[in-house]
Design a protein around this nucleic acid. Structure first.
Lengths: 166, 166
DNA sequence: TATAATAAAAGTCAAGGAAAGTCAAAAGGT
DNA sequence: ACCTTTTGACTTTCCTTGACTTTTATTATA
């Protein structure tokens, strides 16, 4: 993997640790990291703020003082299990049409999602493919509540792309 | 080859680089190019805007600040199914941001796509997961180029969902 | 034992520098 | 004349650094 900057180097290192962690979270020390990467400790804070914030799908817990620590959690999917397994049948096109009709999605949004479903259909055969599509559709549905409140340009909604910079 | 202007000279140079790249993308620095061709940096921006836009079949991603870069992709999605592992570097968040910033996607659209990438990332581990995401991203890019062409042509046509069958 | 001092973390914030972006004016070409 | 290219002053974004602050645990002291 090509490393572009110190920030990314540290980011990759932490994500690697996370990927290898069986718990879904890791614990590190800012001081140690700073030492390992030969940088100022606040650099670590910067990485945490810009790459591991809630919007990016991570949650950071920390403690100062002696025995201080930084714990990083990967938020897998906050909405897991909201829907019964086969609540959503395979005909996404129809569902997308309905959502457009009801004003939950724009034509373009539905177009893009349909594109996604088709790619997965064509590349992931069998049961797993439809499982994936179901998962995605589920996530879309659960975020529709947020989406609905997001008129173009409004601020403060959760239905936004996470910032690259925190 | 007959060179008519600096723009074309730079254009040719970049296309040559692209042709020789095994990945279908290259990474350069505006500052370096400007130096190499003895021109002001904004000349490079001009070349990028006029010769390497989506309509021309290219996609440009960039980052300002320290260790900034410019990455140029040739979109030739058709039938180029298999890519080396690192064909599309890392996180799609940056790419989605770029597309939003350039006005190709709305915040909502990017949000939805990011959702998709995250679901796939979490459900399809390893090589195949990133392969899938790459496929989807390429499809999105090509259809965006397609969309733009449509918008310039007739009818204020947007991306349309195929009609429901039956 | 209760409190005060000390040390060892992590947090904050702003300055500084290194990129790329913007925009409009000037220059060239047809 | 019009459209494309070239230029440069100014802006924005992002990374890095360091001085200073706050929080927590440990140790010393009354």
């Amino acid at each position: 993997m090509m490393i572009r900057s110190l920030v990314e180097e540290i980011e990759n290192y932490l994500k690697e640790l996370l990927a290898q962690s069986p718990h879904g979270w890791i614990e590190v020390q800012r001081k140690d990291l700073a030492e390992k990467f030969a940088c100022v400790p606040s650099q670590i804070t910067y990485v945490l703020n810009t790459r591991f914030n809630l919007k990016c799908g991570y949650f950071v817990e920390s403690r100062r003082g002696g025995r201080g620590y930084i714990r990083i959690w990967k938020i897998d999917s906050c909405f897991r299990g909201l829907f019964p397994e086969d609540a959503i049948p395979g005909d996404y096109l129809g569902l997308l049409h309905t959502l457009v009709q009801k004003g939950f999605l724009t034509e373009r949004e539905a177009f893009l999602l349909n594109l996604v479903f088709r790619v997965i259909e064509s590349k992931v055969h069998g049961e797993f493919g439809s499982f994936l599509n179901r998962q995605i559709f589920r996530e879309v549905l659960t975020s529709l509540g947020f989406l609905r409140n997001l008129e173009e340009g409004t601020t403060g909604s959760q239905a936004r792309l996470p910032d690259r910079k925190g």
